[in-house]
Amino acid sequence: MAYISRFTKYSIGKKIIMGISGLGLCVFALVHLSGNFLLLKGQAEFNAYADILHNKIPGFVAVELGLAACFIVHMWMGISLAIQNRNARPQQYAVKKSNTTSLGSSTMAYTGTYFILFLIIHLMNIKFAFLPKPIVDPSIDKYTVTAMVLAQPAWSFFYIISSIILGIHLSHGFYSAFQSLGIAGEKTTPKLLIAARIYGLVIAVGYSYIAVSMLMLHR
C-alpha cells in the first residue's frame, strides 16, 4: 500500500496507472462489443453466451471485480490529474489557438464523466433490469431485458449517443495510454494515432449498429 501511494505521488506514476487501467477497459470494450453482436444472432444464442459468462466460467466474479477496479482507479487518477491541471493555470489566456488538439483530447474529462453516468444507467437497466421501474420476474432472461430497453426509441437513441461519446473518448485514450506507458516512438506514434481513431470508430459504429438493429427488430 505504501508503495502504491509513493508511486501515485508522481504525476508519471498516475499517468501510468491511468494508461494500464485504460487499456484494460479498452480490451473490455472490444470483448463486450463482440459478445453483444450475438444479440443480432438470436435470443437462444445470446442467452447461451450470457449463461456461459456468468455461470460456466469459474472466477468470472473476479473478472467483474477487476473491471470495476479498473473503472474506479481510472476515474480516481483522472480526477486527481485534472485537479492538478486546473491549478497549473489559474488564469486562462484571452486568446488561445490550437495546433494539434483533437475533439477527443480536448473533451476527455467531459466524455469520461458522461461515461460514468452512462455506466450507472446501463448497469441499472440491463444488469439489474430496472427499466426505469424494476422488473420483479426473476426468470426474465438477458436477451429479453436488452430487447425491452432497445425497443424503445428514446433508450435506443441514448445508447447510440453514448456509443459515439465513448468512441470519441477512446479515439484519444487508446493512443494516450501507449504514450503514457512509454510505448511510442518516431515510427510507432503515427501508427498509434491512426489505430486509436480506427478503434474509436469501431466502438462508436459497432455499439450504435447493435442499438439501431435491436430497435428495428423489436419496436
Binding site: 505521488k9 504525476s11 499517468k15 491541471n85 491549478n87 490550437s98 494539434t100 488538439t101 480536448s106 476527455m108
Partner: peptide
C-alpha cells in the same frame, strides 16, 4: 518529483 512540486500540470497528449 521536482516538476510536480513546482505546480506544473500533467501531459494529456494533446501534442500542443
Amino acid at each position: 518529483d521536482r516538476m510536480d512540486e513546482l505546480g506544473f500540470g500533467n501531459c494529456t497528449n494533446h501534442r500542443e
